[in-house]
């Protein structure tokens, strides 16, 4: 229980310190944090359900992100703009993520207790397959309708796809300013809606089942719960939410970096969740929301702080990737220690 408060506290201290040394203006940082909140918020929330179901951190949310990108590229390929395009990419992305979620779920049911390492590898593998399809498949097996997004050699898609027709469709809705701080209320509400939705799921019968399966497979089985099916549902839900979350991310940026946009989404989302006080076995919506703020404020200010303290912005850069990986490593170590059996000795 204590780690649930200690970790966020460390992040508050670190980001406070880094903010002090960075000399950035609070308004700038706040604007950035709000942007990050919109971009990464839903992705972080996607991790919560698998953790509740006892499957640990689902690093294969990358697959959800890839599904979103595939849907997006398809929409661009067909030259659909605005709403119809949005609809198409959402539908394609969701369909793909349900299918891939099912496959991942079946895989994970074979590897009880080693889910996390398996999801990492699945993420890597999916990235390769995705690259193969869009770098090689496009132009050879698949004929594109939109030649503009192709590389000049005719095979493979360009590294960058401009999403002009979707830019500012949602971001500017209900946008208003308080002083120098911009608040895109609609998007913030959207992220909050996802948070409410996940909170709601935990309060339903299905949510109870996730929790029971997460506590103990054997007991859940004895109580007549179909454990494999519940676990698959958890992964499908997670992949779906990740897909939608990544759509938010790309649309907010307004450009699709075809081959790299999905990279590290899993690591950063997970680190953010852990920063909010979640553990590998227990995660709540509030951990996610708090975590995004803490983690990203540190992320924004640390390069500048590195520049000002050490005279080298790279050091701040290293510091933040260390924080990202280190937070996850720390959460893993801490969790295992709580479960550790004590050795025999007379007390």
């Amino acid at each position: 229980m204590t780690s649930g408060k200690r970790v966020p506290l460390v992040f508050v201290l670190l980001s406070g310190l880094a903010f002090y040394y960075s000399g950035m203006s609070p308004a700038f940082v706040l604007n950035e944090v709000i942007t990050r909140f919109i971009r990464d918020g839903v992705m972080v929330l996607a991790l919560i359900i698998p953790i509740t179901a006892g499957m640990g951190i689902n690093f294969s949310i990358v697959v959800g992100a890839l599904c979103a990108q595939a849907g997006l590229i398809l929409a661009v390929d067909f030259g659909l703009g605005s709403l119809s395009g949005l609809l198409l990419m959402t539908l394609v992305g969701m369909a793909l993520s349900v299918v891939s979620g099912l496959i991942i779920g079946i895989c994970l049911n074979r590897v009880k207790n080693r889910e996390m390492i398996t999801t990492i590898i699945i993420g890597f593998l999916a990235t390769s397959i995705y690259q193969l399809i869009f770098m090689v498949g496009y132009g050879t097996l698949i004929t594109p309708t939109n030649q503009e997004m192709m590389l000049s050699r005719g095979i493979g898609i360009r590294n960058m796809v401009d999403l002009e027709m979707f830019r500012n469709v949602m971001d500017t809705l209900w946008l208003f300013k308080i002083g120098r701080i911009e608040i895109p209320l609609f998007m913030i509400l959207m992220v909050c809606a996802f948070a409410v939705m996940i909170k709601y799921i935990t309060m339903t019968r299905l949510g109870k089942k996730f929790q029971v399966v997460g506590e103990s497979h054997e007991k859940a089985l004895a109580l007549g719960i179909n454990v494999p099916r519940v676990r698959i549902k958890a992964i499908v839900a997670s992949t779906l939410i990740a897909c939608l979350g990544h759509l938010f991310y790309i649309l907010n940026i307004g450009m699709l970096n075809v081959y790299t946009a999905h990279m590290n989404t899993d690591i950063f989302s997970c680190a953010a969740l852990m920063a909010g006080g979640a553990t590998v076995v227990k995660a709540r919506v509030r951990h996610g929301l708090l975590g995004i703020f803490l983690f990203h404020s540190l992320f924004i200010v640390s390069p500048q702080a590195g520049q000002n303290i050490f005279g080298n912005p790279a050091l701040g850069e290293y510091f933040r990737s260390f924080v990202a990986y280190g937070t996850i490593a720390f959460a893993l170590i801490l969790n295992a220690r709580n479960q550790e059996a004590k050795t025999g000795s007379i007390r």
Binding site: Y200, R205, K208, Q211
Partner: peptide, 29 residues
Amino acid sequence: LSVADNICLSNEKTFPWSRKLFGEELACI
């Protein structure tokens, strides 16, 4: 889980409105 949750496990009472809206599985407890 709490004592109440354990006793009512997989036999939970749910709000009727949520049952109508989202079905048995996604009904709010």
